[in-house]
Structure formats: C-alpha cells, structure tokens
C-alpha cells in the first residue's frame, strides 16, 4: 500500500498511489494512513485521483481513517472517480466527508495557493 504525504501549509495531503482500496488491502491502507498522520496536528486531505475502485471494506477503512483523526481534525476527500463517487453516494458517506473535485480545488477552499 503506497501512500505519499505532502505538507501544504496547514493541510496535510495524503496521495493514494494505488488503483484500488478493496478488501485485500483495507487493513494495509488503515495502517499506512495511521503511520503518516500520527504526528500531524491539522486536517488531512485524501487524494483519491488514482483510485479507480473502492469496495465496502475500502470504504470502511476510509471511515476508520476519519475516526483516527478524531473530532478535532478533519478528513476531506478529493478527486473521486465515477465508481468511487457511486459508492460514496449510495452509502450516503458523501454527507460525512467534505468532497472536492481536485486537490487544487481543496487547496483553494482552504486558501492555500496551488503552487505554494
């Protein structure tokens, strides 16, 4: 499970460098996410641009990641593929997460310039 962390001012961006978050890697995702955000004080943006498929186990792992951050820190999502968007919508998890069209949009929403 390859996740890449990028700090963008107050926001920590986690890029998921995998094309699937499914039952076979859900636990690895959770563990890798925990490692990366452990010492991050602020909110986290999860970049899902490369993820073409998310099943209910993968969704459970994303929810677990959200819970890991607690009530003080936010987890937002960016760049959902059509299949990922469909799962988020049908399970109504799109009401739990702030969802942005792209990482650049999310940055702009947080007042961070894209080239900064």
């Amino acid at each position: 499970m390859k996740l890449v962390k990028e700090s963008a001012g107050p926001l920590c961006v986690i890029h998921v460098e995998e094309d699937r978050i499914d039952a076979s890697v859900a636990i690895q995702f959770k563990d890798a996410f925990r490692e990366l955000v452990n010492d991050e004080p602020g909110g986290v943006l999860l970049d899902l641009a490369k993820v073409q498929f998310l099943d209910s186990s993968g969704l459970g792992a994303v929810v677990a990641a959200r819970k890991l951050l607690g009530g003080e820190r936010s987890l937002e999502l960016a760049a959902l593929s059509p299949a990922v968007d469909k799962v988020m919508t049908l399970t109504r998890m799109n009401s739990v997460f702030a969802i942005h069209d792209s990482v650049a949009d999310a940055m702009a929403a947080h007042g961070i310039s894209a080239d900064g």
């Binding site: 959200r66 819970k67 998890m93 009401s95």
Partner: peptide
Amino acid sequence: LTALDVDALPEGGFGWAL
C-alpha cells in the same frame, strides 16, 4: 449518518445496501 458523532460512524454494513 447526519446524527452521528465521528466516533460512532459505521465502518461496515454497507455491502448489502449496495
């Protein structure tokens, strides 16, 4: 989901709905 605290969010039980 709207009424739930972060800690109470479900991590499963989505499959059959889908």
